[in-house]
Every structure is written in C-alpha cells, then in structure tokens.
C-alpha cells in the first residue's frame, strides 16, 4: 500500500498540492485523473522522490520516502517518466539491462540476465533486442522503456502519462499488459491518465484531482459520474454504462 499523509507542495510560492492524504491499494491499478494543472504529475513525482518532500509523508510498503536509502527504494518502487525528448543510442537489451542496476550495481549476474530476457519476452521485444532504441517507433520505444521498468522488478510501478505517444492499438495493449502485471504478478501500479475512459475501463481505483486536492476517490463505477465531470473537469457530458462500467460520451 502507498500511504500519503498531509502532503503539501509549492513551486515558487504557488501551491501545487494542498494537504493531500490518500491510500493507494496494493496489487491494484490506481489511476490519477483530473484536468491539466491539477497536480497529478507532481503527486507522482513526490511518491517517486523525483521532487523533494516539503511537507507531509509518503510511505511505500514499509519504506518511508525521503528517509530510506535511495538504492533500497529502487528495488521496491520504479517510475516510468514521460518520454524524454532525447533518446539514448542504446540497443533495446542494453536499455532493459539498466533496469537491473539497483541489484547488480554494474556487475550483472546470471539471474539479472535471465530477468532481462524475461522482460524482453513479456513485452514482445526479443526480436528487437539488438535494435537501437533511437531507431524504434514511438510505441516500440515506449514498450522498451516499460520493459526496463518491469526488469527493475519492483512491487510498485508508477507511470506518468504512458499513453501519450501511442495509437489506440498500442494504448490498449499497454493497458492490458499493466492489467496482467497487477492481476498475475501482484504489482501495485499507479498511473497518471488523461483519458477517463481508459481509466474507467482498466483501473481498479480512481483518484480524481482538482486544484491540488483530491476531489473524489473510489472504484470507477462509483466515481465516474456527471457530477465528477461537471465539478472537476468543468464539462457536461453524458455517461453511459456498458457492462457495468461508466463510459463518458465524449
């Protein structure tokens, strides 16, 4: 479980997050949704210790972010940042291998290599293993990066808007993969999403943010309502229910 208590954050005097307390369930996919500037990415960065905590606490499993060792946390928590604009000239296998760095610190063992091969296989990258990352398509690149995060083999995985560069096929197969990681590998996944429908379809738990605060949280069936759309997203749209799942008629 990730427990967040009384988290506040400011950037240059402007409040980004105000007094957030939140528990994200273990072994599930939680999606952070909300309009632009709601503070979703900042919250994710704080959990991942990419930004320094200013006030409040974050506990991941039994590790307290900020006081536990960086390397230790790296074995329990990984983050897939928004895709960098400059892609390294590494072959896919080398990139994925770097995911094992927290364990081997530069001297990979047979176990590490097996983990890398496994990650390549899970993400269907075995055939591309020798290709350079900068020659891949956006979707393949994204998969390679997620494979690296997967190879890191952490219980908690954070993903910041991973669907940004993907077409519908790529986005769906990625979400299905995450679903599989949560259901069959026991991963706890926190993901920032733009599209409510993807969140509603694939996530177990939704956290809607607005102006640096939590507006609503809960299972998709209870949270995605016309109230949410009106109050948080400032838009009026119909909601239809298909197989019990709320779908926003965009």
């Amino acid at each position: 479980m990730i427990s967040i208590r009384n988290l506040s954050h400011q950037i240059g005097g402007a409040p980004i997050l105000t007094d957030i307390s939140l528990d994200l369930p273990r072994g599930k996919i939680s999606a952070l949704i909300g309009p632009n500037g709601a503070g979703k990415s900042t919250l994710l960065s704080l959990i991942a210790r990419l930004e320094k905590l200013q006030g409040g606490s974050v506990i991941v499993g039994n590790l307290t972010v900020g006081s536990c060792s960086n390397r230790e946390l790296a074995k329990h928590l990984s983050i897939l940042p928004q895709m960098p604009d400059q892609v390294p000239r590494l072959c896919v296998r080398d990139l994925v291998s770097f995911g094992r760095y927290p364990y081997h610190q530069g001297r990979p063992t047979a176990d590490d290599e097996a983990a890398v091969e496994h990650a390549l296989a899970v993400f269907g990258l075995t055939g591309l293993a020798k290709r350079s990352v900068d020659e891949l398509s956006g979707g393949q690149r994204q998969r390679a990066q997620i494979a690296m995060t997967f190879a890191q083999d952490t219980e908690y995985m954070l993903l910041d808007e991973p669907l940004n560069n993907l077409d519908i096929a790529g986005a769906r197969s990625l979400m299905a993969l995450l679903r599989d990681l949560a259901d069959n590998h026991g991963k706890t996944i926190v993901i920032v999403l733009h599209d409510i429908n993807y969140a509603s379809r694939y996530a177990d738990w939704l956290v809607a943010m607005h102006d640096g605060q939590i507006a609503v949280e809960g299972a998709p069936a209870q949270t995605v309502t016309s109230d949410l759309l009106r109050d948080v997203f400032q838009t009026d749209a119909d909601i239809q229910h298909i197989d019990g799942l709320p779908i926003v008629m965009v």
């Binding site: 960065s45 991942a48 210790r49 990419l50 960086n70 390397r71 230790e72 946390l73 790296a74 074995k75 928590l77 990984s78 983050i79 940042p81 960098p84 390294p88 590494l90 770097f98 995911g99 760095y101 927290p102 995060t149 890191q152």
Partner: peptide, 16 residues
C-alpha cells in the same frame, strides 16, 4: 550512461 537518460530515470534506478 544512466545519468544520460535523465534525472527521473537516474533517481528511479536508485542513484543519487
């Protein structure tokens, strides 16, 4: 090489 992938990746892999 890891630092060349950016601050986020570096931190995520447990490096300072």
């Amino acid at each position: 090489a890891i630092v060349g992938m950016g601050q986020a990746v570096t931190t995520s892999l447990g490096l300072n």
